[in-house]
Design a protein around this nucleic acid. Structure first.
Length: 587
RNA sequence: GGGCGCGUAGAACAGUCUGGAGUGUUCGCCGGCCUGUCAAGCCGGAGGUCGCGGGUUCAAAUCCCGUCGUGCCCGCCA
C-alpha cells in the first residue's frame, strides 16, 4: 500500500517512484496546477498535480484519506519550503486514490487555534491527529519505553498486579466495582499497587516495577484524573538512597529520551521543613526565587495588632518580596482575597517608594528602624512590593507559598528543576486535632521512640520527587516488622482487633522473613506533561475525562439496563431513577 | 460541597458594562476565477434556538433569577 513515509521523503529519493498514503492536510488549487500536502504519522510532503491529468484532485478535501503514487522531484529553484523537512522535494502525482473521504471537520487539524476542550474530547480521534497531540502521544510512548529499558537493564522484574482488589488505606476514595457472584460486596480498583508490591518483596522478587493504572475517586484538577498511570517500583534490601538513585536514573533516561537533555545528578535533597520554610509548599518550584523571609524578630515590638497577636500566639510573621508589580487598590484586594482562600485572615502589603519610604496600611505602626530592618531583610528596592502574613507557622508559610506560586510562576522558559523533598513528618494533625498518616500507613518511621513519644513531630522515611513545582510522586522505606506495623495502626487509632480484621492477612505475611524494603511511584502523566510543556495532564492522556468525570465522546458513565442491576443485586435510589427517566425521555 | 470565569454560525472571536432589526471579523463549507503555492490569492454565496427556562421592559445576545455544560481554584486528593 505504501513504499515510503511522507515525512521522511528527501533529496535522496529524487527520481524514485514512491507510493505514500495518509491524510490531505491542505489543498492549494491554482487552476492549472494544484498542490496538496500529504500527512502521515511521520510528517508532511507536498504533492503537485495537474488537474487536467488528474481531475480527482478537485475532489480532495481536508482530511481525506488518500494514496498517492508518483515520482520524487527537486522543487524548482525558489519554491523550496525551509519550514518543511521534506521541503526541498515534492511528489509529481501519477496516481491518486481516495481511500476514504472525510466529512466536513468539526474543527481544523491545526495547532494554531485553541478549540474548546469539550469539542476536542467529543472528537478526540481527530484531536489526536493534531501535531501537538500526536507528539504528546509519541513522547509518552518513548517515556515508557525508556523507563522499561532502564529498569530492565538494572535487573528489574515487571510484574502485573490485580486491578480488582479490596479497599486499601491510601487516603483517597476508592473506585468500587460491584460483585455479581457476591451481592452486596465490592471490589476496589487500586489507588496504587502498594500492598501487592510489598508482598512481592516477601515473595523474593527483590526488584519490581510496573507501569500501573491507578484510580482515585476524587474531584479532578488540571493535574488529576480519576484514572492515571504510575511507574510503581520497589526494591528489597534497599535504603533510601538506593531508591532515590534508581528513580534519578529512570528520570534522567526519560528526559534524555524525550528532550535529549542531560540532567545533573543527583537532584538537590531538601528536607520538608526547609522547603516549607523557604517556599511554603512541599513541592516547590525551584526555577525562581522569591523565597519566604522570617520577619518575626524585626517586628517584635510592633504595635500592629495582627503582628502582636501572631507573635503572642507563638506564631510567626513572614514575607515575600514579590518584586516590581503594577500596584493598585484592586490588585491589593485580589491578592488579599487569594491569601484568604489559602487560609490567611488577611494580607499586609508594602510598596517601596522611589525615595525608599514604605507605603503601606501598616506603616504607621512600624518604627523607622523596623521599616529599615524589614526592607533590608526582604532585600527590597524601590518599586518592589512586599507581602506579609502573620499567623501560626503552617498557615503563614502556606499562604506565602501559594502567593509565591501565583506571582513568580515563570513563563516561557522550559528549564527542568528536579528535587527531592525528604524527612516528611510521619503524621499530620487535622484541624480537629486527630492524627492521620501524611504518606500511607506502611511508611517506616525514622525512630520508634520518637514515633511513640512525640508523634506530632516524628519524621518518616518518606520522600517526594518534585519537578518544576509539580509533585511527580512519592515513596518511602516501608515497615517490614509486623510489630511496628501494628503500633503504627494503633497510633492512627486503628485498634488491634480492627487492624487484625482488616489487615491481618498482611500482618501475617510480614511474619515470614520480610526483607527490609522500600520503593517509589511517580505519575507518568505528570512527568510527560511537564516534559512536553503542557499545563494540563489531559493533554498527555489520550482519552481523558472532564471535571465531572464524563467522557464527552462515549458519554460514560451511562445508565445500565435494569437486568444488569438485578444481576449485581443493586437498586437505584429514587433520586437516581427520577434523573434517569428524565434523561431517557425522548425529546 | 463552595468561589470565580466562560457559553453568540461547523471552529475561534467581537458585540453584553451603557437594552433598540441576528450587526460583524477570521478560518472552514458551497460556487466561480487563477500554472509555483505552502495558513495560497481574488470574486460571489450559504450558514444563527445568541446553552436552556423564567422574569423585568414598548423592546433582551445585552439587565435580573434559576438551571445545564465547561474550565481554573478552595475543600477533597499525594
Amino acid at each position: 500500500m505504501r513504499t515510503h513515509d511522507a515525512g521522511t521523503i528527501s533529496v535522496s529519493d529524487i527520481d524514485s517512484e514512491v507510493t505514500i498514503a495518509g491524510w490531505v492536510q491542505r489543498r492549494r488549487d491554482h487552476g492549472g496546477i494544484t498542490f496538496f500536502d500529504m500527512r502521515d504519522a511521520t510528517g508532511l510532503v507536498q504533492v503537485v498535480a495537474d488537474p487536467h491529468d488528474h481531475p480527482i484532485v478537485d475532489e480532495l478535501k481536508m482530511e481525506y484519506c488518500v494514496q498517492v503514487t508518483g515520482k520524487v522531484t527537486r522543487r524548482p529553484e525558489g519554491t523550496e519550503n525551509p519550514d518543511l523537512p521534506s521541503g526541498l522535494v515534492e511528489i509529481g502525482a501519477e496516481n491518486i486514490t481516495v481511500l476514504a473521504p472525510a466529512k466536513t471537520l468539526p474543527f481544523m487539524i491545526d495547532d494554531r487555534r485553541d478549540v474548546d476542550e469539550r469539542v476536542r474530547l467529543q472528537h478526540r480521534y481527530l484531536d489526536l491527529r493534531r501535531p501537538r497531540m500526536a507528539a504528546n502521544l509519541r513522547a509518552r510512548s518513548r517515556a515508557t519505553a525508556a523507563i522499561r529499558r532502564t529498569l530492565d537493564d538494572m535487573g528489574f522484574l515487571e510484574v502485573e498486579t490485580p486491578t480488582l482488589i479490596n479497599s486499601t488505606p491510601e487516603g483517597a476514595r476508592d473506585m468500587l466495582v460491584p460483585s455479581r457472584l457476591r451481592h452486596g460486596e465490592f471490589y476496589a480498583l487500586p489507588q496504587s499497587p502498594q500492598i501487592f508490591k510489598q508482598l512481592l518483596m516477601i515473595s523474593g522478587v527483590e526488584r519490581y516495577f510496573q507501569i500501573a493504572r491507578c484510580y482515585r475517586d476524587e474531584d479532578t484538577r488540571a493535574d488529576r484524573q480519576l484514572e492515571f498511570t504510575q511507574l510503581d517500583l520497589e526494591g528489597a534490601f534497599w535504603d533510601r538512597d538506593d531508591v532515590l538513585d534508581t528513580i534519578e536514573k529512570v528520570l534522567a533516561a526519560t528526559v534524555m529520551e524525550i528532550r535529549g537533555e542531560e540532567i545533573p545528578l543527583p537532584f538537590p535533597r531538601l528536607t520538608w521543613h526547609e522547603v516549607m520554610n523557604r517556599f511554603g509548599v512541599d513541592k516547590p518550584d525551584l526555577r525562581f526565587g522569591m523565597e519566604i523571609v522570617d520577619l518575626t524578630d524585626h517586628v517584635m515590638d510592633s504595635e500592629f495588632g495582627v503582628f502582636k497577636g501572631a507573635i503572642e500566639a507563638a506564631g510567626t510573621v513572614r514575607g515575600i518580596n514579590a518584586g516590581r508589580q503594577e500596584w493598585s487598590r484592586a490588585r491589593a484586594d485580589a491578592l488579599t482575597d487569594r491569601a484568604k482562600e489559602l487560609g490567611a485572615r488577611g494580607l499586609v502589603w508594602m510598596v517601596v517608594e522611589e525615595d525608599g519610604t514604605l507605603r503601606s496600611p501598616v506603616a504607621k505602626f512600624l518604627s523607622d528602624s523596623e521599616q529599615e530592618a524589614i526592607k533590608k531583610a526582604m532585600d527590597a528596592a524601590p518599586g518592589d512590593v512586599v507581602l506579609i502574613a502573620a499567623d501560626r507557622w503552617r498557615t503563614t508559610v502556606e499562604v506565602l507559598g501559594g502567593l509565591r506560586n501565583d506571582l513568580g510562576h515563570p513563563s516561557g522558559h522550559d528549564d527542568l528543576a528536579f528535587l527531592w523533598v525528604i524527612d516528611f513528618p510521619l503524621f499530620e494533625e487535622d484541624e480537629d486535632g486527630s492524627i492521620t498518616f501524611s504518606h500511607h500507613p506502611f511508611t517506616s518511621p525514622v525512630s520508634l521512640e520518637e514515633m511513640r513519644e512525640r508523634p506530632e513531630t516524628a519524621i518518616s522515611k518518606a520522600y517526594d520527587a518534585v519537578l518544576n513545582g509539580v509533585e511527580l510522586g512519592s515513596g518511602s522505606i516501608r515497615i517490614h516488622d509486623p510489630e511496628v506495623q501494628r503500633q503504627v495502626f494503633e497510633i492512627l487509632g486503628i485498634d488491634r482487633e480492627t487492624a487484625e480484621r482488616r489487615f491481618g492477612w498482611f500482618l501475617e505475611a510480614l511474619q515470614y522473613g520480610t526483607p527490609p524494603h522500600g520503593g517509589f511511584a511517580f505519575g507518568i502523566d505528570r512527568l510527560v506533561m511537564v516534559l512536553q510543556g503542557e499545563a494540563s495532564i489531559r493533554e498527555v492522556i489520550p482519552f481523558p475525562k472532564t471535571q465531572t468525570g464524563v467522557d464527552p465522546m462515549t458519554g460514560a458513565p451511562t445508565w445500565v439496563e435494569e437486568t444488569q442491576l438485578a444481576e449485581l443485586g443493586i437498586d437505584l435510589t429514587k433520586e437516581a431513577r427520577a434523573r434517569r427517566e428524565e434523561e431517557e425521555e425522548p425529546a
